[in-house]
């Protein structure tokens, strides 16, 4: 706790280098929930590693334990088996040196936009406050929210609210950013815009992002690596490397043959798993791909 606070202070004082932070490793993690209908296995012995500065998406059908992953990694809920390491520290209690973005924006309705963004600084008692205030203004400007600093969240649209919550997660400049289907509640157009905004903000922070989604093209567009998960109990079906899609990503990225190849590959995995039907049988869609 003390260490991580010092880290945060140093970062604020010195600015940050590229690819900072520590490796996150998930080692043989299982999670069983005790429910009224008996034990429910959300994750089945899963291991993976994320390197500093990587943008990794976890892609899977609804209810496959994707959210559970974030909860376990951040130490908010304990896992039943296995363990999570961040750097050389085992996660045993809530890990505070990370930013969390939920599907719902979870803004404090009673705080202004700026005060919402400054919440982590306030609670983690980061100093100097002026430095972070400046950063908050920068982030809000990058998110296209300058001029709204003193507005209340109830005056903003859904997309704007979610941008505020992303700024809040980034204000302390954490090396790890966990995002749990952050754009799931937004309409398709706003969602596309948010993807670009996220990439823009992320390219400046170089933090590691673990991004949970069930949207295939969103995952391919944003990520360096995609972890494809099965139905419950969640297991890793495949890990895709997307280094053949160069950054910066933009509209032309979606026209690359590689972009569609990855999307089709993931669809194919889901078809084989029975998560997608693959359409009408006569099309021979499945055969053509294999």
């Amino acid at each position: 706790m003390i260490n991580s606070k010092n880290d945060e202070m140093n970062r604020a004082a010195t600015g940050h280098s590229e690819k900072r932070g520590q490796t996150v490793s998930v080692e043989g993690v299982s999670k069983v929930y005790q429910t009224a209908g008996g034990p429910l296995k959300a994750i089945e012995r899963t291991s993976f590693k994320i390197e500093p500065g990587e943008f990794v998406s976890v892609l899977g059908p609804s209810g496959c334990g994707k959210t559970t992953f974030l909860m376990v990694i951040s130490g908010l809920i304990p896992c039943t088996e296995g363990y999570v390491m961040i750097g050389d520290r085992k996660v045993e209690k809530p890990y505070t040196d990370l930013g969390f973005v939920f599907q719902r924006d979870i803004l404090m309705e009673w705080r202004t936009v700026l005060s919402n963004v400054m919440l982590p600084v306030e609670i983690k008692k980061l100093k100097p406050v002026e430095k972070y205030q400046e950063r908050a203004h920068e982030l809000l400007e990058m998110a296209g929210l300058s001029g709204f600093e003193n507005s209340l969240p109830c005056e903003l649209s859904g997309g704007m609210r979610q941008r505020v919550s992303i700024c809040r997660a980034l204000v302390s400049d954490p090396p790890i950013l966990l995002m749990d289907e952050p754009f799931g509640a937004l309409d398709a157009l706003t969602r596309e815009q948010m993807n670009d905004d996220l990439l823009k903000i992320w390219s400046k922070s170089h933090s590691m992002v673990l991004f949970i989604t069930h949207n295939i093209s969103e995952a391919v567009y944003l990520s360096d690596k995609i972890i494809v998960m099965s139905k419950r109990p969640g297991r890793i079906l495949e890990t895709l490397d997307l280094s053949d899609l160069p950054r910066p990503r933009n509209m032309t990225t979606k026209e690359f043959p590689a972009f569609n190849r990855h999307i089709n590959k993931i669809r194919h995995i889901f078809v084989n798993q029975g998560i997608l039907s693959g359409g009408e049988e006569e099309t021979g869609y499945v055969d053509k791909l294999s």
């Binding site: 809530p94 505070t96 969390f100 939920f102 404090m108 306030e122 609670i123």
Partner: peptide
């Protein structure tokens, strides 16, 4: 208080008093 808000409080390292005073009570 929505459970995500309490998760947020914990992931920020908020104390019990802060969780009450800055999250639960105003909500």
């Amino acid at each position: 208080t929505p459970s995500e808000m309490l998760y947020l409080a914990r992931s920020l390292g908020a104390s019990g008093f802060e969780t009450f005073w800055k999250f639960r009570f105003p909500h």
